[in-house]
């Protein structure tokens, strides 16, 4: 690994909801580093804590959440940063695309207004310059007839276009980090492919660092340099995306990969599934959280939680007592 200072460094981050009944620990001991211009995929099933992590970075955790550890952006500590400072960072330096971008556009405001108000909240620009920038950004996210779109309301746009508009809003103040929480889940497959291509293009053009949350390994594999697999709020595997996907060392990652639908899968066979479910929120297991569902679990797995340890050169790390053999 290079000694370059990371754009985003997350260390020992936990998110818990002590006020909930029972108290819930959504995330524990998460660690990640992201260099400028690189991309990281957060993978895991629903409830694994992916979104909690994505929200915690720009300080958007729900009220009542207790965030601990350290989140450094450009060297600046974000945990316990003042609300004013966080507001100044959001949009300006950290763009965020919510889970359902369809619902994330204000229904009563024109597309142009939503773009320019974000831009003008962060940069001193007059209305005309902001409008020109909005037009340029719509072109960049490949919205057809951008000038006409500025005067339209969100309900007049198709799902794919609305998604492109919310990407444009997230990027218009030129942030250096974009956090996208399942940006393609609400879209159909052909539109999804277009949005994925757009993300690739934007990353290259804007030198944008990307944190992409997804439950789809294929999406992450196509877009991300690094991958971080979460299970029940803990990192179970991390490393370069190609290596992790091709040769998963954690049994959970392997099972997740086997459960992905691909065109190469033999016809007629049912898709592989992972039997069982994650521990219920609020349940804290002494050992590995995946042990109850793991094909390779032994007595030690139930008793002792495996630490995240390096398994190979190139930075791949896995939290398992009995990692799968390298292929």
């Amino acid at each position: 690994m290079s000694a370059e200072a990371p754009l985003l460094a997350v260390l020992g981050v936990g998110v818990s909801f002590p006020g909930a009944r029972p108290p819930v620990r959504a995330l524990a001991d998460v660690e990640l580093r992201l260099l400028a211009g690189r991309s990281l995929g957060l993978v895991g099933e629903s409830g694994a804590g992916k979104s909690q992590l994505a929200l915690a970075i720009p300080g958007l955790s729900a009220p009542g959440a207790v965030v601990e550890g350290s989140i450094r952006f450009c060297g600046e500590e974000l945990i316990n940063a003042s609300p004013a400072r966080l507001r100044a960072l959001r949009g300006r330096h950290i763009g965020f695309i919510a889970q359902d971008p369809q619902a994330a556009l204000a229904p009563h405001l024109k597309v142009g207004t939503q773009l320019t108000e974000t831009l003008r909240s962060h940069h001193a620009l007059d209305a005309r310059a902001a409008r020109a920038a909005a037009l340029q950004m719509l072109e960049r996210v490949q919205v057809p007839a951008p000038a006409a779109r500025l005067g339209q309301y969100p309900h007049e746009l198709s799902g794919g276009l609305r998604q492109r508009v919310s990407i444009a809003i997230a990027l218009i103040a030129s942030p250096s980090l974009l956090i996208a929480d399942e940006p393609t889940t609400a879209l159909d497959v052909t539109v999804e492919a277009g949005i994925r291509a757009l993300f690739l293009k934007l990353r290259q053009e804007l030198k944008l660092a990307l944190v992409l949350v997804s439950h789809d390994l294929a999406v992450v594999g196509g877009l991300c340099d690094e991958i971080l697999v979460l299970y029940a709020g803990r990192v179970v595997e991390s490393g370069p995306a190609a290596a992790v996907l091709k040769d998963p060392r954690h049994h959970y990652t392997a099972a997740l990969a086997a459960a992905s639908a691909t065109l190469e899968a033999p016809l007629g066979l049912p898709l592989a599934t992972i039997a069982g479910s994650q521990p219920a929120p609020g349940v804290e297991l002494a050992g590995c959280a995946f042990a109850p569902r793991c094909p390779a679990a032994a007595a030690r797995c139930h008793a002792e939680r495996p630490p995240l340890a390096s398994v190979a050169a190139g930075g791949a790390r896995v939290a398992c007592h009995f990692p799968r053999a390298s292929a």
Binding site: P58, G91, R92, A98, A104, A106, L109, T118, H122, S166
Partner: peptide, 26 residues
């Protein structure tokens, strides 16, 4: 707790603007 209000927060809009332009019309 509507998503478009949370999106406005995530975009770093000032509180007054969120209140006047996003909350009031609704």
């Amino acid at each position: 707790h509507k998503e478009f209000i949370e999106a406005a927060v995530a975009a770093g809009l000032p509180v007054r603007r969120i209140l006047v332009r996003h909350v009031l019309p609704n």
